[in-house]
Amino acid sequence: MTSLFSERRIVSVVIFLLAVGLVLSTFGLEFADLGGAFSPMFFPRIILFILLGLAVLNVGIDMLAVRVAQPIEVLPVSVIAVAFLAYVLLLVPLGYFLSSTGVGAIILFAVGLRNPLQVVLVPAAASGALVGLFNHVLKMPLPTSPFFWWI
């Protein structure tokens, strides 16, 4: 019943659509028309056509086969995934220490830790140690915060 829109089928269809989009994008681009091996699209086009062929086969296989999905705890995974994306984007504006402490706390909270001392202190100590080592001992600086240049 649930089988038509199983996770697996959606993934294989998405990959197929992406491959179609990429193949189309290799045409009609403004590249110097040198032809053959000189064209920047020569190699990618070969790769993408094969990928497209495989994707078609793959959609077929996934449509025919019925598989039971693995269980998944959606909430912690989504929270960590979103937090990590935010983390890498905020790493430069906020600096390594602040953003790492933040994402570390969110990960710990998401997997079920509730003691506020543990949730904040462990990531703070870990990222603080790394900043101390790289920025001040090795002079290989990680991004710093706009508030204090030394952290």
């Binding site: 790493l91 790492s100 570390g104 990960i107 079920g112 830790l113 870990a126 990222s127 790394l130």
Partner: peptide, 13 residues
């Protein structure tokens, strides 16, 4: 849980 945090932070570095 601590291990997951350590892996994440080290990978970033």
């Amino acid at each position: 849980a601590y291990m997951l945090v350590m892996i994440s932070l080290l990978c970033t570095v």
